[in-house]
Design a protein around this nucleic acid. Structure first.
Length: 624
DNA sequence: AAAAAAT
């Protein structure tokens, strides 16, 4: 890696000393204090006075990682409890309708012409609206208040099993670029996250670090900015949440629910509402039993609901861009305390769609500059041109961590490409779904309209199907995801809204009914299966009428993931060969600190038209 | 051109 200073000798002098002697000791000490205090926790009752200890530091025999029981009860049980009563019933609407007009009942889609109203009138949102309890009586649209999260410990910590290939993660090549990177850690214990976090980690079922966690956690703990690229399903969320939480507990938090203006220490953004909600649920797991309160806000829900959530205390704010900017514009949160800014699916957050809003975010009044905050970017794909844009968000000495090939597919997904013309797709889909049986399957299509159409079609074919896309009401989207997650509807037809980040247990199959327009989107979509060491299958319909531009990058992705490449696909790839074409994200290293400076607009393509492999990738084993 | 994201 030409002159990047990356490799075995990659300097971690200085860092480890500093870490052990200053940060780490205070860190440990604080935790010990906190743990002792917490040992007597459950029986303790403290008033507001003792809560102040939470903000102050470690000195008063009460640490930041412990929360006053009363406070905690109010934060979790009490207020949610009353909320639950207030909205009971609204979350159970049996009948709903998409904007495009097809009526759906509980079992998924009804035929377009069968206006089946399932369930009793009492349970349909429509009658609820007529009763005037649901909000807007006029239109078909009822503003959605998301159901309160269940608060019992078991549901907070529910998780699923890692798969048979989980241990194979250890053989993946990892590459770290940039100066003075801290050494990787090998175990959770080494991270010194503290007893409370360790308990939560254990309860969440995490026992072993994934590569992106081994490398990213120490980087984040060292206070460095980070751009991390790791394959789908390999634990990126925990990789940023855990070190941030550890630091927040070490340093103390400023916003309690007693504060007028909430000033979160951490802001996390993601490109879809369902994804940010999933990240929030993880944040809630890891912050359980601490003073840190995570809040999630996104569009399609009542603004007032978002504000009420924030007012109750907000240390980690999980948000989609639109609602976040809205809330900031209304001055419902202050940005002065922001110490951590996380962009999940960072390439997506920085591209043409969201980039302008992210730029607005970092230049909002009160927002600390990049020098004053820590910025973390995570994604499985990261096109080079987007990596360049990222410099505006990151300190110049940021570190770049790449697990495997950037933009590479997960090898635990068996990929199949079938040549299917557009008029044969439906027939082929039914045939495949019949062979699949009851296993959970995501079917991706290109447009919202088509998602409705295919879902309706499948229901007519007696396949229990639901759908998710941006034209459905938020509550419909969440119901669809819920029905799919719990197995009630084993087939989910989706647009790209569900392509990134969603972590759903037991998705054995992904079918690209339509291929996406970019290869990165393909990598994200098939990454909904084969997660966390489990195996999965992806079948894609390749229509030579429309998909030829994907042949070349597909061949690259397939061969990198050691998949069979059909000869007809190779032929199309060859005949549509574009010299100098880079399959968007291909090519591992661009963003390393040194190459960034030297970047002259040329990508690192080899004669095959693809980016070359990273020179001298660091074998993870050599760090041990 | 499409999808997503504020109303």
């Amino acid at each position: 890696m030409g002159g990047l200073g990356v490799g075995k000798g990659f300097g971690n002098k200085g860092f480890s000393n500093k870490f052990e002697e200053s940060e780490n000791i205070g860190f440990l000490k604080g935790y010990q204090d906190g743990n002792d205090a917490e040992a007597s926790g459950p029986s303790r009752r403290g008033g507001r006075g003792s809560f102040r200890g939470c903000r102050g530091g470690f000195g008063i025999g009460r640490s930041n990682n412990e929360c006053d029981q009363d406070e905690r009860a109010q934060r979790t049980g009490g207020l949610f409890g009353s909320r639950r009563t207030a909205v009971s019933g609204t979350g159970n609407g049996d009948t709903y309708r998409s904007r495009s007009g097809s009526a759906r009942g509980r079992g998924g889609y009804k035929g377009l012409n069968e206006e089946v109203i399932a369930g009793s009138g009492k349970n349909s949102w429509k009658s609820e609206a007529e009763r005037g309890e649901g909000g807007d009586i006029q239109g078909p649209k009822v503003t959605y208040i998301p159901p309160p999260p269940p608060e019992d410990e078991d549901s907070i910590f529910s998780h699923y099993q890692t798969g048979i290939n989980f241990d194979k993660y250890d053989t993946i090549l990892v590459e770290v670029s940039g100066h003075d990177a801290p050494p990787a850690i090998l175990t959770f214990e080494e991270a010194n996250l503290g007893q409370t976090l360790n308990n939560n980690i254990a309860k969440a079922g995490y026992t072993k670090l994934t590569p992106v966690q081994k490398y990213s956690i120490p980087v984040t703990l060292a206070g460095r900015d980070l751009m991390a690229c790791a394959q789908t399903g390999s634990g990126k969320t925990a990789a940023f949440l855990l070190p941030i939480l550890a630091h927040m507990m070490r340093d103390g938090i400023t916003s309690s629910r007693f504060k007028e203006l909430q000033e979160p220490e951490c802001i996390i953004v993601a490109p879809t509402r369902e994804l940010i909600n999933q990240i929030y649920l993880e944040a809630r797991k890891f912050s359980y039993g601490t003073c840190v309160r995570a809040v999630v806000i996104y569009g399609g829900t009542q603004l007032g609901h978002s504000i009420r959530q924030i007012v109750q205390g907000c240390n980690i704010l999980c948000a989609t861009p639109g609602r976040l900017m809205d809330i900031i514009g209304k001055e419902k949160i202050g940005l002065k305390q922001v110490k951590y800014l996380v962009l999940d699916e960072a390439d997506r957050m920085l591209d043409m769609g969201f980039g302008p809003e992210m730029k607005k975010l970092i230049s909002c009044p009160g927002m600390p500059t990049k020098e004053q905050r820590q910025t973390l970017l995570f994604s499985a794909t990261f096109p080079e041109e987007i990596q360049r844009l990222a410099a505006e968000f990151l300190k110049s000495n940021y570190l770049f961590v790449a697990v495997g090939q950037v933009g590479g597919a997960c090898r635990d997904v068996q990929q199949t490409i079938l040549q299917v013309g557009q008029y044969s797709k439906r027939e082929k889909l039914v045939e495949i779904l019949q062979n699949i049986g009851d296993e959970r399957t995501m079917v991706f299509v290109e447009t919202k309209k088509k998602a409705d159409f295919i879902a309706t079609f499948l229901c007519q074919e007696k396949v229990s199907t639901t759908s998710i896309h941006g034209d459905r009401e938020q509550r419909e989207r969440e119901q669809a995801l819920g029905d799919f997650r719990c197995g009630k509807c084993p087939v989910l037809v989706a647009t790209s809204v569900a392509a990134r980040g969603l972590d759903i247990e037991n998705v054995q199959h992904v079918i690209n009914f339509d291929l996406p327009s970019t290869i990165d989107e393909y990598v994200h979509r098939i990454g909904r299966t084969g997660r966390c060491g489990n195996t999965g299958r992806a079948i894609s319909f390749f229509d030579p009428e429309s998909d030829n531009h994907l042949a070349q990058p597909l061949v690259k992705v397939l061969s990198d993931a050691q998949q069979d490449v059909p000869s007809w696909l190779e032929e199309i790839a060859f005949s549509t060969y574009v010299p100098g074409f880079s399959g968007s994200t291909r090519g591992t290293v661009f963003a390393s600190v040194d190459t960034r400076k030297n970047y002259k607009g040329k990508s690192t393509l080899n004669t095959a038209g693809f980016s070359s492999q990273a020179p001298n990738p660091v074998d993870e084993e050599s760090w041990d």
